[in-house]
Nucleic acid binder design. Structure first.
Length: 225
DNA sequence: CGCATTTGACCCTT
DNA sequence: AAGGGTCAAATGCG
């Protein structure tokens, strides 16, 4: 792998994330060696998730430099291209906006919970060297409110299930989040496509904003099957 | 019946 | 040319 010019900030972040991964792995080793030892509320699964996130974030930083355009968090003033879908839509398929200036956020979760916004799936694609397809979502209110938020969801591990969720842009839609959506891949099915389930929840939206990289608090979500 | 998802074709970037 | 992102007709679902 050829070397690149990394900023001091990047190097610090890389070091920090690798150190974090090492520390988490050390804790995991302790838990494996002494399963009965009380280490607080930490679950092995959570630990693994955090370790995976540490790797992913590190890779993300490395790749953002490698390709010099897509960075993990990019603040920008605007995306220069309008959202117009005018003129002969027939032959304009596949064109897409440059995303290098869009804000990008990557999360990895073991359970797929979205942020309370309404998403509409518009594509699914098999990715080279990836075991699972990538799913493409846009905000449901893209056209009626011009909301530019997009996201991609890709399963990156089967057992334990792990998903990478990449957000592009942020929501400008005014819609109050009423319906939370979950996307669950049933491990028992061999199909690649994800299944979208809807839950009507009445009073628990605030937790969606508290999702942290690596783990998702699931216990506080009350919904019914 | 209206809206969401599926899915292959199409188009853009590298 | 290959890989990835988007479109839109067909299909599914409530």
């Amino acid at each position: 792998m050829e070397s690149e010019n990394y900023t001091q900030s990047d190097l610090e972040k890389l070091t920090e994330k690798l150190n974090r991964g090492r520390e988490l792995t050390r804790r995991l080793r302790e838990m494996i060696k002494k399963p009965e030892a009380d280490v607080g509320d930490v679950l092995t699964e959570d630990l693994v998730g955090k370790i995976m996130s540490s790797f992913s974030e590190t890779i993300s930083i490395l790749r953002s430099n490698e390709f010099s355009e897509v960075s993990q968090i990019v603040k920008s003033t605007e995306d220069s291209s309008g959202s117009c879908k005018t003129s002969s839509m027939k032959d304009r398929r596949g064109r897409y906006k440059r995303r290098k200036t869009l804000e990008t956020t990557i999360k990895e979760t073991s359970t797929l919970v979205d942020d309370g916004h309404a998403w509409r799936k518009y594509g699914q694609k098999h990715i080279l060297n990836a075991k699972y397809p990538r799913n493409y979502f846009r905000c449901t209110h893209k056209f009626d409110q011009g909301c530019e938020a997009n996201k991609q969801v890709q399963r990156i591990q089967e057992n334990p299930p792990l998903f990478r969720v990449t957000y592009y842009g942020h929501h400008t839609c005014k819609t109050f989040p009423k319906v939370s959506q979950m996307i669950c891949d049933s491990p028992t099915h061999d199909e690649d496509s994800s299944v979208l389930l809807n839950f009507n929840s009445t009073n628990n939206h605030h937790h969606f904003l508290d999702l942290m990289v690596g783990t998702v608090e699931f216990a506080d979500l009350s919904f019914e099957f």
